Amino acid sequence: MAGLTWGKFMVGSVVVAAIAAGVGVWYTQERAFYAPVAVEDAKVEITSITSGKPEVILTENLTAIDSESSPIRYRACFTTPTSLALLTETYEVFDRAVPLVAPDTFDCFNAAAIGEALESEEAIAFMGEKHIEYGIDRIVAVYPDGRGFVWNQVNSCGKSAFSGNPLPLGCPLPPEKN
Rank of each mutant, 00 (worst) to 15 (best):
D41A: 07
D41H: 11
I46S: 05
I49N: 10
I49G: 00
T50Y: 03
S51A: 07
S51P: 04
G52I: 01
K53S: 08
K53A: 03
K53N: 06
E55M: 11
V56W: 04
I57N: 03
E60I: 04
A64I: 04
I65A: 00
S67L: 09
E68T: 10
S69L: 01
S70N: 15
P71V: 02
R75I: 02
C77F: 13
A85L: 07
L87M: 11
T88G: 03
E89D: 15
E89I: 00
Y91G: 05
V93H: 04
V93C: 02
F94L: 09
P103F: 03
F106W: 06
F106E: 07
D107H: 12
F109Y: 15
N110I: 06
N110H: 11
A112Y: 01
A112K: 12
I114E: 10
G115D: 09
A117S: 14
A117I: 01
L118Q: 09
E119M: 06
E122M: 10
M127Q: 11
G128K: 08
G128E: 00
K130G: 12
I132Y: 05
E133A: 15
Y134Q: 07
Y134N: 07
Y134H: 10
G135P: 04
G135T: 02
V140Y: 01
A141W: 02
V142P: 04
Y143P: 02
P144C: 07
F149D: 01
